[in-house]
Design a protein around this nucleic acid. Structure first.
Lengths: 339, 339
DNA sequence: TTCAATGCTGACACCGGTGTCATAATGTCG
DNA sequence: CGACATTATGACACCGGTGTCAGCATTGAA
């Protein structure tokens, strides 16, 4: 037998027609039990596997999803945000559970995506993942919707289409962080992140945080804020600039764990003790968080659930079913950096 | 226009035959420049994308590679080894550079792989990634070779087929670690990892380490060894058991960074200071390594190069070209845990 | 006995491209 | 001017499945 076996080969050896082979292998109720068994038997012997290309071509679907991972262009290419890697893991598993394959692609430039996976029938739908820059993405989202491309995205919301988004309750998470710091009595708080509306997720975290303080009648000092993107480096520099400007605080909320880790480095360097002098709270609960010194108190996002929801919602969209907006509950993880 | 445009639609609007469209879009030299331009023009207007399934079916190749990631079954599913995630990143990028898509799949059980990606024409070849259990994998490797499946693997070597493996020079890396510890005068050394031949990579690291000590006339004490798989937990427990058995040492070589991080936790818990009392050296240079306390001295594996080599070699195999065994040079990264 | 219903199977068109071959148009040279 | 090479194009088979429809045998009801 040269080359791979085809359904015709199976048909030949099983003494039936190719049509019957196709039906038998998909366990169609139309075929006789005895025939079905024989066909399966032969197929196994010849190590036959259905040709996905032929099958996909005929059925016009690929049972494959594509994951587009948007990286912060400023970050080092080998240093992918561990939070997204955790998401990648859960998405992969969710896909496998649903019998879908997953194509993974890193998108470095936000201007021209390689979003033709669906057009070219390589994937039935797209999952977009990244700390979104809300403003830049909208035009592209519109194009995707116009072309009737099925997609869901993490975090960044899509105008008028809340059903396309799965995200953590960032606002609620910010509140949790604030309430924890308030409970420990550290009310003089700094914020490192991006409180502009460019980064909607960070913005929501900040809002929740601020509002929780407001509820207690405490107003955050705007001067005790510094912008940072989600990298250790950026968190380090932002915190250093606060310190350099002689800004004092006894607690710090970072918009992500990576930022928090950078902040701790800056604090240590300035001989400011964590948690004695400053309590630190991060966001994400990436795996490193437990191993830094001191272990980082943080707001956990349930990546397993998130991946599952992204995949579930996307499959529903593909099947044309109704999807509801999805907001996942965050959870406070208390560790050494704040007690 | 209902549904997606096909090459026949382009043909219609460009006033040529479908054959010509196909040729024009692939920039065949057979088609007239003017015709080519017109076809491209129409295709762009209709947002036409070649149907990958049809194309793949005809050409019998998929311009897709599949990555099978083998997880340590004992590790928590949400905690994927960061080293592999770094590899995943570089492999993805290498694939993109070569114009290949990448299918990602996690394999949890080592007994029955989902290795039918090639049989079903979903991928042209496989990349196997994991801290391999040499003995278990060999039969499966043989099957793959028998079925003429194109694959390369990281770390684990394949009987008689060195060309199928890309790995770090683990032996040399072990030596580097040893020489560094020797240079700092810490000759009373413990090893945490797996020095059996079940884990060939760890074994090679240990061999190199041991031999470097031998070269200086120092024989490692077999009692100062503990088995661990590549997780923080496992490293922690292994180290704790050494301490519990009252085994003393002034330096420690861990077969991986995760193990080293666990070891440091155990040491700290026992009030043993790093690096004052014990120097610690890990292996991998995962991104966490720089952020633990103290920052971890380690042996770096060049994941960018590794990913590139895996992809390059696999593509060569697919094209039927000769491939040579590939051993990547490790590099010592000195940080606070050993100075 | 006749006809309809049921169960099972085979023939065949079709999915949307790619590659081969035939052919028409144009140019070149002795 | 005829023989032939060159260039550009169209017709058509083909990749390996899936879905539809027709056909045949068997069974049951009228």
């Amino acid at each position: 037998m040269k080359g791979k076996a085809t359904s015709f080969d199976i048909a030949h050896y099983a003494g039936v027609s190719q049509s019957t082979v196709s039906r038998a292998l998909r366990n169609s109720p139309l075929v006789n039990e005895e025939t079905r068994r024989r066909v399966h038997e032969v197929a196994k012997q010849l190590n036959y596997k259905v040709d996905k290309n032929a099958s996909n071509l005929r059925t016009q679907q690929s049972s494959t999803l594509a994951l587009l991972l948007f990286e912060d262009p400023t970050s080092d290419e080998s240093q992918i945000n561990p939070f997204f890697l955790a998401m990648l893991g859960s998405i992969t598993r969710a896909c496998a559970k649903e019998g879908y394959d997953l194509l993974v692609s890193f998108q470095s430039s936000s201007s021209d995506w390689q979003a033709d996976y669906e057009d070219s029938h390589r994937a039935d739908g797209l999952i977009l993942l990244g700390y979104g820059d809300y403003l830049d993405y909208q035009p592209k989202f519109r194009t995707l919707i116009e072309q009737n491309t099925k997609f869901v995205c993490w975090g960044a919301s899509v105008d008028n289409r809340p059903d396309l988004t799965v995200s953590c309750d960032n606002y609620g998470g910010g509140k949790l962080a604030a309430e924890h710091l308030l409970a420990t009595g550290r009310t003089d708080c700094a914020f490192i992140g991006d409180a502009s509306d460019h980064s909607p997720e960070f913005f929501a975290r900040y809002q929740g945080f601020k509002d929780a303080f407001m509820d207690k009648g405490i107003k955050l000092n705007e001067r005790k804020m510094a912008n940072a993107i989600s990298t250790e480096e950026s968190g380090y520099h932002a915190t250093r600039s606060l310190i350099a400007n002689n800004i004092r605080f006894n607690s710090l909320f970072a918009a992500s764990d990576l930022i928090a880790i950078g902040a701790i480095r800056a604090l240590k360097e300035a001989k400011i003790k964590v948690p004695d002098d400053v309590h630190v709270v991060g966001f994400d609960n990436i795996s490193i968080a437990n191993f830094v010194n001191p272990p980082l108190t943080t707001i956990q996002q349930d990546t397993t659930l998130a991946g599952q929801m992204l995949v579930d919602n996307l499959l529903k969209l593909i099947r044309g079913e109704q999807v509801e907006s999805t907001l996942l509950p965050p959870r406070l993880i208390i560790r050494g950096s704040s007690v």
